[in-house]
Design a protein around this nucleic acid. Structure first.
Length: 634
RNA sequence: GCCACCGUAGCUCAGAUGGCAGAGCACCUCACUCGUAAUGAGGAUGUCGGCGGUUCGACCCCGCCCGGUGGCUCCA
């Protein structure tokens, strides 16, 4: 038989029964001490797997994405062994590899604490130094259930029972055996660089009605340098945290006195927000949307009619006015539907697209609040499109275009996710199917990659979400396109078709940025606070050198603000280097230095945020330059 | 809401074992009038998150509450 290393010529091997490691050595693969596993005809296997027929082999190194995943998964097993050694009676549950590392969920008599981590790490190092082999075995599931049951590992028993497979695979290193599909490293000694990072609570099987387990997170990399680089990255990401920059750049604050999840926008933040809202209104008007405005309070009766009262009540705030119950809107759709319903609509009028920068309130549970990204009051760039069923797909696709164009302007990449019918929902099976199909087809015809989230849709319809990432690479839902046949039905919305009969329109709920607050949070991290000129709340700052230059600086300031440029002045009696430093820290794009030279020549010297100096120019030239750059949205 | 951790000056943070609360920056005053990332000197600044308890005495120990951070669940 013959084996060949991927990308090189076949090597004859004399006998069968070589394992992956030996086969790789025979075919002279290099860097053997960094091999995590082996690909046999493209399939990832343990190095101990026997190669019993001719095959193409490819070594998987610990610094490749797949190799790293194996390494991290093996690290999770090592951690579980360490925890079991140190805390007898701990039940193990699951422990997968994740981005940058791994976790394992445990059930112990008390939750684990940060203080337990050094001890666990120490034990892990010992296990790694023992270089224990990971040994795979396959046993009938009934046998495995017996073994785990006798050890009191009730969670493992539950997992195996659900697997409903005849044979299941186990991995053992030293005294620790775990239910696992594998593959794993050949031995614990291959784990070169790891660190336990934090503990957290996590529900068994992600269900808040079940046991709260104790999760320990760790990071692991192929070598210490990579681990150090990762930790350094984390430090850098912290500097981009929108909550930190929000304070430093004086954009916003969240005060205990106001209540959690409520944001105050300071002048700089309010300006940034205003620029984005103004931009959005223009972009919507361009695309055939009409403006609409609805009230904050709507009668509870109306929320009962829409289904929000039954399906969304725990997220809503209610109040009473003269014995009438009112709900504060958590969504903007009802007012828009009432606008639609205010007169008879013809098929010739459709689609109707109502746009509102709609402020909503939602009762978010205290534990989920997060800076600007998860708040209790926020403003959506919300629109509702009422259209004929035939127009639905074209409308969805034009929204996908809209999202693409806007995200390109801000320089965002995004991932699409489609969410289907949740348990708690309204509407008929047929409508759900129709709506879900419309969304999937729209995305597929665009050849866009997407992921399906079963059961994650809104209660009235399925949705497409666009996810943006923050500084720590956490994904946040921003744009969403939701297809809805149920609410038009509940509100008896109709249009008169060409046949003269009444028909039911479809409704699309959609946002492009999502919530202005969340988008700003992600945007601040995206630009690390150094906004492009068109977004910068303060575009220019005038820095005088001596008090003699103040009148000239004052005139310049008037000229610039008269031309619509956002300008600030720093006329304090401080050294220029000090003023430059402060402007630099505030990430102001244009610093205008005015001293005696400029005063005499009637021009300005420009220092850019990146440290470059521009040749002296007249105020008129500066205005043109700034306008030009702003228009290009750079 | 659940689990762990945290809360000291406007900000960032130090305060062994319980015994008169500190630094840097910011702020105010004065001097300096200065050319591209921090001029010098002086000054003021606290219910030590809140309430209760233990103690001769609590920033420190205990309980409850409020708020934040990281996760889980939920979600724009």
């Amino acid at each position: 038989m013959a084996i060949n290393l991927k990308g090189s010529s076949p090597v004859d091997i004399p006998a069968q029964g070589l394992n992956g490691l030996e086969a790789l050595k025979t075919s002279s693969a290099d860097n053997m001490d960094k091999v995590a596993a082996i690909k046999v005809n493209g399939e990832i296997k343990d190095l101990s797997t026997e190669i019993n027929s001719s095959a193409e082999l490819e070594p998987l190194y610990t610094d490749s994405p797949e190799g790293l995943q194996i390494l991290r998964h093996s690290a999770a097993h090592v951690m579980a062994q360490a925890v079991r050694d140190l805390f007898p009676g701990t039940k193990v549950t699951i422990g997968p590899a994740i981005k940058n590392g791994f976790y394992y969920d445990f059930d112990y008599e008390r939750p684990f604490e940060a203080g337990d981590l050094p001890e666990i790490e120490k034990r892990m190092v010992e296990i790694i130094e023992e270089d224990l082999p990971f040994i795979r075995s396959e046993v009938p599931s009934s046998e495995a259930i017996e073994v785990f049951r006798s050890q009191g590992e009730s969670y493992k028993v539950e997992l195996i029972e659900e697997l409903s497979e005849q044979k299941i695979s186990l991995y053992r290193q030293g005294n620790f055996t775990d239910l696992c599909r594998g593959p794993h490293l050949p031995s614990t000694g291959k784990i070169k660089a790891f660190q336990l990072t934090h503990v957290a609570g996590a529900y068994w099987r992600g269900d808040e009605h079940r046991a709260m387990l104790s999760r320990i997170y760790g990071v692991a990399f192929a070598d210490q340098e990579s681990l150090n680089a990762h930790l350094k990255n984390l430090e850098e990401a912290k500097k981009r945290d929108h909550r930190v920059l929000g304070r430093k750049l004086d954009l916003f604050s969240i005060s205990d006195d106001l209540g959690p999840g409520m944001v105050i926008f300071h002048p700089n933040g309010a300006m940034l927000r205003h620029i984005i809202e103004e931009f959005e209104i223009q972009e919507h008007l361009k695309r055939g949307y009409e403006l609409a405005v609805g009230p904050q309070l709507l009668k509870a009766e109306l929320w009962k009619k829409s289904g929000h009262f039954d399906h969304y009540r725990e997220n809503m705030y209610f109040t009473a006015i003269e014995d009438q119950s009112y709900g504060i809107k958590p969504m903007n759709c009802l007012a828009h539907m009432l606008i639609y319903a205010s007169k008879v609509r013809s098929y010739r009028d459709l689609p109707k697209r109502y746009f509102e920068l709609g402020t909503v309130h939602r009762h978010e549970r205290s534990g989920v609040l997060h800076g600007l990204i998860r708040v209790r009051q926020f403003t959506q760039d919300d629109a509702h499109i009422l259209c004929t069923p035939e127009q639905l797909k074209a409308e969805i696709q034009s929204i996908l275009d809209f999202v693409r164009e806007i995200m390109a302007i801000f320089g965002f990449d995004y991932d699409l996710e489609i969410s289907t019918r949740p348990k708690k929902s309204i509407g008929t099976d047929e409508d759900w199917e129709k709506a879900t199909k419309a969304l999937i087809e729209s995305v597929e015809e665009y050849n866009l990659p997407y992921q399906i989230n079963e059961g994650e849709g809104a209660f009235y319809g399925p949705k497409i979400d666009a996810m943006l990432k923050d500084a720590l690479e956490r994904s946040w839902q921003c744009a969403t396109i939701q297809c809805d046949f149920a609410l038009p039905d509940r509100f008896d919305l109709t249009y008169v078709g060409s046949d003269g009969e009444k028909h039911r329109p479809a409704m699309i709920h959609r946002v492009i940025l999502g919530s202005i607050e969340r988008f700003l949070g992600v945007l601040i991290e995206h630009y690390a606070g150094a906004f492009p000129l068109w977004l910068a709340p303060v575009q220019t700052i005038i820095l005088t050198i001596t008090d003699r230059n103040i009148p000239f600086g004052g005139d310049l300031s008037k000229t610039l603000s008269g031309a619509g440029i956002r300008v600030k002045t720093d006329f304090r009696n401080e050294k220029l280097s000090f003023k430059v430093r402060e402007a630099q820290v505030k990430k102001i794009p244009y610093m205008l230095v005015v001293g005696d030279k400029e005063m005499e020549a009637g021009n300005v010297t420009v220092r850019l945020r990146d440290g470059r100096n521009l040749p002296p120019m007249s105020p008129g030239e500066l205005i043109d330059r700034i306008r030009d750059e702003s228009e290009k949205r750079r």
